Simulated scan of single mutants.
Amino acid sequence: MTTEPLKPHSREWYARLARELGGYRHPWARVLEGPDPELTFDALLMERLGPGVRVPAVRVLEAGCGHGPDAARFASRVGRWAAFDAVPELVAQARGNAPHADVHEWTAKGEVPSGLRGPFDLIVSRRGPTSVILRLPELAAPGAEFLYVGPRLDVPQVPDRLAAVGWEVRGEWRVSVRARVPTRQDWVTRCEWMTEPERVPEWDAHAGPDGLPYREERYVVLASKRS
């Protein structure tokens, strides 16, 4: 990647990822020393999509689809898979990668594009914008569920926003897996991504011949409208 500084998580920053890495991908090397911490999210999602056969009654909205890996994997299994992202470059990649999905550019703020209007039976967000939670009342079908995975053990705005729109958390999973980064630059890049610059000195204090050990964390939430 080039070294010109961009504000982390700005549209321009994500656009650079799309151009240089071919999608929404972590720009650092890591080695997991246990199961992928997002497998809990995967299992909950697949449980709701059925046993590998097309379920035409299920309508899914994906918030923050990136370059479309989930849409490419699952869209052909449901009646409708709509998705959105705020970055035009990622939207274009998702449309190419997931031809069975209906992908739009949106920020989860302002008017809902016509192609994203519900109702949806399942709204999912894999490290995507939590602002979609505030739109659940107008997007969700009766009995719908919301499934989210975030990059830390706690993402407090998720339960707070769910409560604000009258939804309740039915399940929470906090997953922590031992991992390591092999080089100092990988650690610096990860700290930038996670907006944790204060953790950069950990490399000098704790890194060994195989790199720096740390914990890869995820917070998974399953919610539905409060009855």
Rank of each mutant, 00 (worst) to 15 (best):
L49T: 09
A63E: 06
L17H: 07
A29M: 01
A82Q: 11
H26W: 14
L90Q: 13
A98C: 09
D102S: 15
Q93H: 05
R80V: 15
F84E: 07
P51S: 06
A72N: 04
V124I: 15
R48P: 06
G68H: 06
E20L: 00
L61F: 03
D85Y: 02
P88W: 03
Y24R: 14
E62K: 10
A92E: 15
I123P: 13
G96L: 04
G64L: 00
H104L: 03
A98E: 14
I123E: 06
P88Y: 12
G79V: 09
D70Q: 15
R19M: 07
R48M: 02
D42F: 07
A98S: 09
A86F: 12
H67K: 12
A72M: 03
G118H: 11
A86H: 07
A108M: 01
R80N: 10
A83F: 03
V78K: 14
A63H: 06
G110K: 08
F84P: 06
E111M: 02
P69Q: 14
W81E: 08
R19Y: 01
R16N: 00
A43F: 01
D70M: 13
S114T: 12
E33R: 14
M46P: 04
G23C: 00
A82H: 10
A75W: 06
G23D: 01
D121F: 11
L61P: 08
G118N: 09
R48C: 04
L45E: 08
E89G: 00
H67I: 08
D85L: 00
P27I: 03
A29G: 01
F74M: 04
P35G: 03
T40M: 00
A29S: 14
N97V: 00
D121H: 15
A92W: 02
H104K: 04
P27K: 03
V53P: 02
E105Q: 15
L17R: 13
L116W: 13
E38L: 05
D85C: 09
V87K: 02
V103Y: 10
P99N: 05
P113A: 04
H100T: 07
P119Y: 02
F84Q: 07
V87Y: 03
P27S: 00
G115Y: 04
A101R: 09
D36V: 02
A71T: 07
E89D: 15
L45P: 06
R80Y: 05
R95N: 12
Y24L: 13
D70H: 13
H104I: 08
F41C: 13
P27F: 00
R16I: 01
E47A: 15
D36P: 07
N97P: 11
A18G: 12
D121C: 03
A72V: 06
W28A: 11
G34V: 00
I123D: 13
E89Q: 11
W106Y: 09
L17A: 00
F74R: 09
A75Q: 01
R59M: 11
A63C: 09
A86W: 06
E111I: 08
L32W: 01
A57L: 08
A94Y: 05
W81Y: 14
A43P: 05
V87M: 05
I123C: 12
L90V: 10
L44A: 12
S125N: 10
E111L: 12
G66H: 06
Q93R: 09
W28I: 06
E47S: 13
D42C: 04
V78I: 13
E47D: 14
D121L: 11
N97S: 14
P37D: 02
A18N: 01
G96E: 15
T107G: 12
